[in-house]
């Protein structure tokens, strides 16, 4: 859980930095916010599958590990 929190914190801060850089280039705030979400809104089905697989994979791994551990103890 701590690892997830650290990663989300880093991601959010760096997205903030990316927004600031967009503003420095001369874009409006609204446009730069849209640019952050746009790549995910235009994803096609295979891309979305890969995206969710990559995001969910560590949780599945953690779940399987936990089940194996509990079976080993039992």
């Amino acid at each position: 859980m701590d690892v997830l929190g650290i990663s989300v914190l880093i991601l959010l801060l760096l997205i903030g930095l990316s927004l600031v850089l967009d503003l420095m280039v001369g874009l409006h705030f609204r446009t730069s916010v849209i640019h952050v979400f746009n790549p995910f809104l235009v994803m096609e089905v295979p891309e979305l599958i890969i995206f969710f697989f990559l995001m969910i994979a560590p949780f599945v791994y953690w779940f399987i590990k936990k089940i194996r551990k509990s079976r080993g103890q039992g």
Partner: peptide, 11 residues
């Protein structure tokens, strides 16, 4: 994963 997501939204 943070690096991956950021590489997409960076510009």
């Amino acid at each position: 994963m943070v690096i991956l997501l950021l590489s997409i939204v960076i510009a």
